[in-house]
Every structure is written in C-alpha cells, then in structure tokens.
Design a protein around this nucleic acid. Structure first.
Lengths: 192, 192
DNA sequence: CTCGCTTGTCTAGCGGTGCTAGGATCGGAT
DNA sequence: ATCCGATCCTAGCACCGCTAGACAAGCGAG
C-alpha cells in the first residue's frame, strides 16, 4: 500500500501547487491573466492535468477562496485580539478586514466577487467560510446592541465593510478618506 | 447638409440600438451571454460595426452603465420624495436602491461590478454617475449628523447599500432578512 | 525477468471569445 | 455617367475553457 500512499501524497502536493500557483498568478497579474494554459505552463504540466484535480477553472477559484478564507479569519482574529476595549476591537477588526482586501485583492475577489461555485449562507457552506464569518461575529456580536440579533448585525457590518472594500478598490471612492470612513462606520453602527 | 445630418441621425439611432440590445441581452441571459457575435446578430449587423461605435466591449458596458445611472438617479429621487419625514425618506431611499439593484442586476453590474472603463470619484467622472451620487446625497446629507461631512457620510451609507446589494445577490446573505437589515442600517447610520 | 494491463500524461483539436485587416459595394458629388 | 469616398462584410488572428484519444511508464502476475 506504500506505493499508493506515495502517489496520493504526490497528487495532494500537486493540487496544492496548482492552487498556490493560481493564487500567485492572480495576485501578480490579476485573475484575467489566470488561464488554464498559463497555469499549466507554470506548474510544468499540461492543461488536462488541471482537470484531473478540478472540474474546471471555477473550482480552482473556489479552492483559492477557501485557502484565503482561513487566512482572513486568522488575520481578523489577530487584529481584533490585539486591541483592548470593545471600540478599539471593532475598529481594529474593520481595519484588518479592509487591509486584507487591499493587500490580497485576488484572494478577496475569489472569495466574494468571482464565481467559485461555493455555497454560502446555507447548510453546506464550507467550513473556512463559516469560520471567517465566525471571526467577525466574535467581535461584532458584542456590540450589536440590545434586542438586535448578533448574526444580523454582523451581516450588516460585514456588508458595509465589503462595500467599502470593493468600491475603494474599484476607484469608486476617493482613497484618501478611508480612515475617516472606518471611524464613522464604527461610531455609528456599533453600540459601545 | 441634409444628407449628412440624416446619416448622423441614423448612426446615433444605431448606437442607441446597440446599447439597448446589449442591456436587454444582459438582463435576459446575463453579461456572460453578451458576446460581440450575438450582439451583432441581434442588431442585424456584422461585428465590425460595433467597433465603429465603440472601442470594444468595455465601452459598450460603460454605455449601459451610464444609461442605467440616469435611471437609477430618477428611481432614487422618486423613492425618497414620496416619503414624509427624514427617517421615512432615508428608508425609502435605501429600499429604492436595493430594489433597483435587485430588479436590474445587469445594469447594476455594468455600473459597479464590471469594468466599463469609466472614471469615478475624479474630475472627469461622467455626469450621470455624479448625478446618481447627488441623488443619494440630497437625502442622506440631511441625516449625516453634526460635524460629519455630508459627502463622507453618503459614501459610507452608499458602501453599506452596495455591500448589501451585492452580497445578497451573490447568495452570500440569507435573502429573508433583507428588510430587517435595511431598518438596522437606517436606524444606526442616520442621525434623525 | 518478462509480459500485459492499468494508470497517468500529453498532443491535438473543438467550439467559442474579442478584435481587425482588407476587399466589395453602394451612394453622393462632379 | 463616372469617380471616389464612406460604409459594411467576409475572413481570419490569437486566445479562451475544455476534452478525446494516442501514448508511455510503472505496477502486479506468471
């Protein structure tokens, strides 16, 4: 059975290589540059190999999204924990979110802008995505205010952050006032 | 000169036809179905004709976006004006925004999700886009609160609406609680 | 050790995309 | 009536996601 195990290990390694390469390429040159041909060339295999690991390009995007979700969850927790006091915690969380979106645009797009064929807000939502939402909920649930469902509050806060992230990156919002917008958002939405 | 004028009229008419057809096709079958071939077939001309009106597909998307921006501005004003009192006005505005995004997904995507090659938040932002923002500002500027710049407040509110619209449509938020989210948003963000 | 077979990989190609070069055609001006 | 310029179309480029079928490498059986 050792032979089979070795092969499975190699296969798993190659799958990770594909996802990592796709992500790298997307971060470097944008998702429109991530084509199956280029991806295949970079991992030094032919195109069909990609399809023995993933159903298609969508699934590769989805894999990058899941990868990024775990990372984002960690980044959010790291940001929020470092702060003391609920207000600073929420502000730090918001900043961490926007920083992640700004510094990992390709991953952020894979998670929320592109179609990665992932289920959301449903029974079979993948664990990393639920965990990223949970990371938001941990901090934001504390400042939802009386009589307001923590989940609902988190959804609204998240939507606001998502809007800021995407509109800013698309050049729809002047980039200079980012910090003031965060403060306004936290001041108004959170019950401290 | 009458001949030339007639030709210009016909050209302008055909350009409108292209934009209207692209929009129609996008609303019916999604933007991924809007290809230059299909579009050309629908307007009963060959592909190269499209390129005598627009530099490429991006510009066609941009034209649809501008079209939609005027419409959205009108919809927002119609919604907000009908209400009495600032709170009802803001709520109506938010609902009008989300309704527009829900019922005209293709146009909304052309404006904010896709790359239509348009300038935003800059000097040479096209008039319809500035006007749509102005429509938001008219109502939201009244509830920004003391010491808060109306433009900045409008940007934040807009971002929140945009986040709700996109996340909801992408299946990232449970569709049932939309109304409760709007109320929470208005309650917290607006100073009434 | 050799043979047959499974498993894995590649070459080649399909139908589609956005976009464009170059030739044909048509209509107004002379 | 003829010329000429504007207008439009046919045909094709390079690229896309994806797949069928040929081929080779490595395994287990005899």
């Amino acid at each position: 059975m050792s032979v089979q195990e070795r092969k499975e290990r190699e296969r798993a390694g190659r799958e990770r290589l594909i996802v990592a390469t796709a992500r790298e390429l997307a971060e470097q040159q944008g998702w429109e540059a991530v084509t199956t041909r280029r991806l295949a060339e970079r991992i030094e295999y032919s195109q069909p190999v990609l399809y023995s690991h993933f159903r298609g390009k969508r699934e590769i995007i989805g894999a990058v999204a899941l990868d990024g979700a775990s990372e984002m969850a960690a980044a959010l927790r790291a940001g929020a924990i470092a702060a003391d006091g609920p207000r600073e915690g929420v502000t730090a969380l918001a900043r961490a979110y926007l920083d992640f979106a700004e510094h990992h645009p390709a991953v952020y797009d894979a998670m929320f802008q592109l179609d990665g064929g992932l289920a959301f807000a449903e029974e079979d939502t993948p664990e990393p995505l639920k965990d990223a939402f949970a990371a938001l909920l941990e901090t934001l649930g504390e400042v939802a205010g009386d009589g307001v469902h923590p989940g609902l509050f988190t959804e609204v806060f998240w939507a606001a952050l998502h809007g800021l992230a995407t509109l800013t990156r698309a050049g729809r919002l002047p980039p200079g006032d980012a910090e003031r917008r965060v403060e306004l958002l936290v001041d108004r939405l959170a019950v401290l």
